[in-house]
Simulated scan of single mutants.
Amino acid sequence: MPHRLLDLATARAMPWKNGGGATLELAIAPAGAGLDDFAWRISSARVGTAGPFSAFAGVDRSLALLSGAGLRLQRGDGRVEELFSGGAVAQFPGEEAISATLADGPVGDLNLMTRRGVWRHRLAPLRLHGRQELENDAEVMLLWCQAGADIKCRLPDGEQQLMQSGQGLLLEAQRGPLALYAQQPALLYLAWLYREG
Rank of each mutant, 00 (worst) to 15 (best):
Q146M: 02
A147S: 14
R75Y: 01
L65F: 02
L143Y: 13
R120E: 13
S165I: 05
P93D: 15
Q160N: 14
G158E: 07
A100C: 09
G34D: 14
T101H: 02
Q161V: 14
L112D: 03
G87K: 00
N111W: 00
A179N: 12
P177R: 04
P156H: 04
P125N: 08
P93R: 15
A179K: 12
L65A: 08
G48W: 00
Q161K: 10
Y181K: 15
F92D: 13
R115L: 01
G34H: 13
A55V: 14
A11L: 00
I42G: 03
L143W: 13
E133F: 01
D109Y: 03
G176S: 13
I28T: 13
L180T: 05
S62D: 12
R195K: 11
W16T: 04
V47M: 06
L143T: 15
A100S: 10
W192P: 02
P52S: 10
A29P: 03
L123M: 10
P177A: 08
R41N: 04
E159T: 15
R46T: 06
R127S: 03
G48Y: 00
G176N: 13
R12W: 04
E196T: 14
G58R: 02
A29I: 05
Q91A: 15
T10Y: 01
P185Y: 12
D7I: 00
A182Q: 12
G68S: 04
P2C: 10
A22I: 05
F84V: 13
P106S: 12
A103D: 04
A55F: 08
L169C: 11
L73T: 09
E135V: 15
L71E: 01
G87P: 01
Q160P: 13
K17H: 11
P156F: 01
Y189G: 03
R4F: 11
W40M: 09
G108E: 06
L26R: 06
S44H: 07
C145L: 13
R61L: 08
